[in-house]
Amino acid sequence: MTEVKMTVNGKAVSGTVEGRTLLSQFLREDLEMTGTHIGCDTSQCGACVVHVDGQAVKSCAMFAAEADGAEVTTIEGMANADGSLSTLQQAFQDHHGLQCGFCTPGMVMSAAALLAENPKPSEAEIRHYLEGNICRCTGYHNIVKAIQAASGQDVAIAAE
């Protein structure tokens, strides 16, 4: 057993984990932060994406002990301080970038990482960046529009 300490969504947390405990398990089971979804356990779907020290990572492919001392942001930490949706989350809602919602936390977290790197990505850049995230419902078009809208781009152009 290993003691882990990290900051999750701005709050110091700690716990005792087995060496094989995945970060996704620690977040969901120990911290009860169930917004991080588990879709495949093989790092294929992207539903479990979180930010670790500012980098988007698939939490089902990282051990909790590897995040010891890290700053972790989950989908629960993406809302504004008053609890309202962030610009990116609101864009997903406004532009119907979700259907069943299962992939949405990972999509939002990946999109936030993209926008941090590239504040005005093209449609092609967005689609390329999201290749590690699988959505079985939307067809991605509205997800791309939502990300473009969150970046301040005119989504009417994307619809043509």
Results as ranks from 00 to 15, higher is better:
residue 120 K to Y: 07
residue 56 A to L: 05
residue 104 T to E: 08
residue 25 Q to E: 09
residue 85 L to T: 04
residue 83 G to D: 01
residue 22 L to T: 05
residue 34 T to K: 11
residue 40 C to N: 15
residue 126 I to T: 04
residue 51 H to C: 01
residue 89 Q to C: 01
residue 112 A to N: 00
residue 77 G to K: 06
residue 122 S to R: 13
residue 86 S to F: 01
residue 94 D to P: 06
residue 25 Q to L: 13
residue 114 L to H: 02
residue 116 A to I: 04
residue 78 M to Y: 00
residue 93 Q to A: 11
residue 43 S to Y: 15
residue 25 Q to M: 12
residue 49 V to N: 02
residue 33 M to G: 02
residue 103 C to N: 07
residue 14 S to L: 10
residue 43 S to V: 14
residue 93 Q to K: 12
residue 11 K to G: 05
residue 29 E to Q: 14
residue 13 V to S: 06
residue 29 E to P: 12
residue 25 Q to T: 12
residue 24 S to E: 07
residue 53 D to Y: 12
residue 95 H to V: 05
residue 78 M to T: 04
residue 32 E to S: 13
residue 56 A to E: 05
residue 84 S to I: 02
residue 54 G to L: 09
residue 102 F to T: 11
residue 37 H to A: 13
residue 54 G to D: 07
residue 113 A to Y: 01
residue 40 C to H: 15
residue 48 C to Q: 03
residue 32 E to Q: 12
residue 8 V to P: 02
residue 79 A to L: 03
residue 92 F to A: 03
residue 99 Q to H: 07
residue 67 A to N: 07
residue 128 H to Y: 15
residue 48 C to K: 06
residue 117 E to K: 14
residue 128 H to N: 15
residue 61 A to L: 11
residue 131 E to Y: 15
residue 28 R to K: 11
residue 116 A to L: 03
residue 79 A to W: 00
residue 79 A to V: 04
residue 98 L to Q: 05
residue 94 D to I: 12
